[in-house]
Structure formats: C-alpha cells, structure tokens
Design a protein around this nucleic acid. Sequence first.
DNA 1: TTGTATGCGTTATCAG
DNA 2: CTGATAACGCATACAA
Lengths: 339, 339
Amino acid sequence: MSRKPRVRSGGGITMHDVAKAAGVSAITVSRALNQPQLVSPPLRDKVLQAVDALGYVPSRSASALASARSRTVLVLIPSLGNTVFLDTLAGIEAVLAPAGYQMLIGNSHYDAEQELQLLRAYLQHRPDGLLLTGLSHAEPFDALLRQHALPAVYMMDLADDGRCCVGFSQEDAGAAITRHLLARGKRRIGFLGAQLDERVMKRLDGYRAALAAAGLSDPGLEWLDPSPSSMQMGADMLDAALRQRPDCDALFCCNDDLAIGALARCQQLGIAVPERLALAGFNDLQSAAWCTPSLTTVATPRRAIGEQAARALLRLMDGVPPETLRMDLGFELMLRRSS
Amino acid sequence: MSRKPRVRSGGGITMHDVAKAAGVSAITVSRALNQPQLVSPPLRDKVLQAVDALGYVPSRSASALASARSRTVLVLIPSLGNTVFLDTLAGIEAVLAPAGYQMLIGNSHYDAEQELQLLRAYLQHRPDGLLLTGLSHAEPFDALLRQHALPAVYMMDLADDGRCCVGFSQEDAGAAITRHLLARGKRRIGFLGAQLDERVMKRLDGYRAALAAAGLSDPGLEWLDPSPSSMQMGADMLDAALRQRPDCDALFCCNDDLAIGALARCQQLGIAVPERLALAGFNDLQSAAWCTPSLTTVATPRRAIGEQAARALLRLMDGVPPETLRMDLGFELMLRRSS
DNA sequence: TTGTATGCGTTATCAG
DNA sequence: CTGATAACGCATACAA
C-alpha cells in the first residue's frame, strides 16, 4: 500500500544508510555512537568508519523525539549587550558543552512579560533544563516550569524559598560599597540607579540600610530612572544630582556604565574625584580599571556563577539533588582611585 | 500487541489531546495553528480555545522531523565578549524572531577549527540557514554547506566570488582612518594589532596601502600580537611601541579596546594626545565617546549588518534569489579629540 | 553483544 | 474545508 515516497530535502543520510554501509543494524549504529562500550570494538570501528565515509550527522529532532530528551538547556538572560551576562554565558557554555548539552539563549530585554513569551516559545524545543536570571518572574512562569517538570537554577541572586540558586547577595554588596564610602569620610552619599530591575533595587536596599545604620538616611539623595543604563545617562544623572544637591559628596552608581559616564562628566567639569565627589560603580567591567581616575567598584563572580549554575543544573537533570540549594559565591570590593 | 506504555517526561500534552478536547482531528489542530486560513472560523476558535485551556505547546522536534524544516537558523560568531557581535545578534534577532525563526548561537572563539566543530555539532539540529562571520573558514566548511544544501550569508566583510555577503570593506576602512591621520599632519603612523583575525589583517592591508600611497611605508611601525585584545594589551603595546620607536607620532589601533588601553597609558605617562601622539581605534564602542580625550574611531553598521543579513537569508531559505549578492553597508569615521 | 518490533508527535499526501 | 493514513529518523524494551 505504499504511496509515492516523499521528496525530502537535506543531505538525507540516515542511520539506516550507515547501518547498511557497515553491514549492521541501525540500532548498532545508534549504540556505537551513544554507548560505545556496549558494542564490540571491531563492529564499533566499522560503524564509525561508515559514519565518516558517508558524512553522517545524527538528527537531534529524531533523537529528541524518540528519547524524550533534547540535550538542550534554555538560558534566559535580561540582556545581550551587557558584559555581565556574557561572562555568565561563557561559564555556562564551558560546563554544558563538554556534557553534550547545547544552549538555547533567550534575551528578555529586561522585560518579565517578554521573558514569559520566550519561555513559551522555547518550550517548543522541550529543553531538559532552565537557567534563569534573577528570582522574580511574570505570573504563570513558575507554574509552567512545574507543569513541564523543568529543572531550573536561578542565577545572580540568592533565594530562601527552596529554589536552587547560585549568586551572591545583591543587598549585602550594595551595603558593603556604601560602608566603604562612609569609611572614606563621606557623609552625603547619593545613589544613581537605572534600569531598576530586581537586582538594582536590592543594591538600593543595601545602600539604604547602610546609610540608616550610620544615621545618615536622606531620600533626597536618590536618583532613579527606569530606562536602560548607558554612559550618557550616567553623565546626565550626575548633572542632575549636582544641580539638585550640590552638597552631595559621594555617589554609588548601580553599575559601571553609569559610573563611567558620571566620571567622564566630572572630568569635563573639572570636579575633583574623589576629593570633592567620590564615585563607585558595580560589576567591575574591564573599563573600570582603565578610566581616569580608575573606578572603585564591586567585582562579581559572573563566570563562576555561570559555571556553578550549569553544574547544579546537570545534577538536577540527572535526577540527583544538588549539593547545596543556595550557593553564595560572594563579591569583592575593588577599591581604586575614584574613592 | 501493545507493550507497556513508555513513561515519558514533560507535560505530555499532545496535539491529539487538543484534538480530542476540541472534537476535531489532529490534523485540523495542526492547520488551525499553522495555516489558519485553511480552517473555518468556528472550528479554528474551538481549537485555539482548547490549546489555551490545556496549555498545549507544539513540539518543535516532531514538527521538524515531519516537515523537514527546523525553523531554526545557525549564527556563528567569533566571540560573545565583543559588543560588535552582540549588536549584530540583536539585529538578526529583530528580523528572524517575527518570521518565526529561532537562532542557534555558536561561539567559535576566533578559532576556525572550533568553528568547524560547531558547524558539525549544530548540523544535528538541521538548521534551515546559516549566518557566518567573515569569509574564510576551515577546509571542509564550504563542502559541508553544499552537502547539506544550506543557504548561507556571510557577514562583516565583502566577497567577490558569488557568495551572499553583507558588510563593508575592512580594507577601505583601515585606509580611510589612516588617511585621516595623515591629513592631521602625522608622518610616522604606527599600527597596533591584536587577535589578528581576517578582518584585522584587512584593516592592516588598508593601513599599509594608505601609507604606501603617501610614500611613508615603514614596516618597523607595526606591532602585531595574535592573542585576544584587551585594554591591558593596548597599554602594553603602547609601551613597547614608544620604547622601540619614540619618533612614532600616531597609532591606528585595530579596535577600540586596544585604543582605550593605549589612551589610558598615555594619560598615566603624561603623553599629550593628540599633539605628541594621535590615537585612533575601530568599531566605535560606547566607551570611545567617553574616555578622555574622546577617541577617534570608525563606526561600523553592526546592527544593520545583522538585520540585512537576516533578511537576505530569509529570502534564500524561501528559494528566492537575494536582491543583491554583495551588500556594502559602508562605515563612518568618528573624528574626536584623540586625533 | 546484537537484532526486531514499536512508538515518539507532527505534517504530507491524498480521499472525501 | 476536514479527515485517515503513512512516513520522518531515532531510541526504548525485549528477545535472541
């Protein structure tokens, strides 16, 4: 009852072709490639030879369909334009690739709703696991994860509700850098914030807590703008801050981009840094060490976060409980000339 | 003859479940989702309702297997740590996503051999098309493309051999910035190069051509290092250059990272820029406008390259010949204080 | 250690 | 416009 055979595109070399060429059955080819130890050396060699000769490339779709494992991990990050997440991606890749997993990278543009759409879209690939940035996500997000029984690891921050996470305390980091500015004798320390995502707000919390502990709280020293951060924005915010509060003697910028812009503006205006105004950033981008004066900032273990998160996810995907549910990788103050 | 039903992971809601819930056949569900115009409105609504109610997510693997189209595009870039390629990725994504395609991103780390491995690995996903960085690739690369009948678009540079490409002339750009330095009255113009990939070497060619045309060739003014570029390396190369050739009066750095490092070093050493030494970079990164003095550089249409390359690829994948095989998007000199 | 039969979830083909 | 049926390429379960 065979109809007209379908015309298919593609190289079209399949496992059966290899099997025929090697004089074995298809399943032996499958095993020779995926579980070599189950195939006798002579047969295995013949198969591998045939694979090479024919230029056979296994089909991931067919494999995923048959095995219900896609060998794929979905990584959701808020931005591709930020070195922070690139370093994290590099760490993830370094761990996942040797384990045979491939990354699907989704860029949410710092938008929870878009992140949800991305999850929906990438769910079509049936990823075996998920690496997420931050702890809070749009509403049906966690429900979707449960429905699809997707193991997930949360990166960059620390949760206390049993979710597996790898990161550091954004709040502690914000507090620590603020205390450093206090220790330098600064008393009217301002905060410059852009983007205003979850992590920036936690740094702000830390900043507030440190000032409160010193009895120096002053809401009039906070400048917040939800638009994406840039050096231009840092320069503009510096202008605004000095105009409104000329008595301000230090600024903690929520990231290095902002800080570098502010620093450049100070140079242009002839404002003495750190004497008249101390500046601190966050993340320790490459440029931070190379601007003049060099920028005090907080170094974050981004690459390590990616690596450890990927390792934890590998365990989860294998059904093994992770060693630690909450992995605190800490941070480091980089004290330079700007403070 | 049914055996024990397989235990499957995943939400496990399939098209058949939706079909049952909507009281139609599976194929009608497929059509309601993929070719709505072929299904009567009432049925279509019932189906879509059932899809929502059940939280059905189609399986890309099954679809790809059945249709021989993965709706996936492989993007091969040399680095994720470089803003240049991020902007390009953003442009690509902006075009491909609305067209229903997803990107697979492969990072070759500037290594042709690794790039070839990546192609092999990602070929398992049977991508419908390929976006490549640069023109030259490891040996069996193009053969593989042909064997798998993969449409490809080459980004960042311009070919003359019939390959579809979107970019600009790296050589012309290198020559243009060199001529600018000449016009500023500089006579002993050096070249600082790192990474030494294809595009850097073409910029070097342009630099050499411009100097030769002015009768000012001087091989002793070239400093080349194959390791990855960084600001640190820019600073180190500046030291070396001034030690070996104190008469050098301008430097064209093959990218902005190098230039910014060199610039910072000049600041530290008290070298007057541009009077004693003029500096120029390449790419026009955000920082270039914000260092002191601001950096003269070459702005490249990275995002537009991504967009146009993606558009061209969409045409190729639809079997339509591209409007232009060779799309020159040009470049722009950003003349700032450092020259 | 190797092979046989079967099914994964979807779409192409062709018939109503 | 809708449906039945047969692939798509591979891996699981089981038998030999």
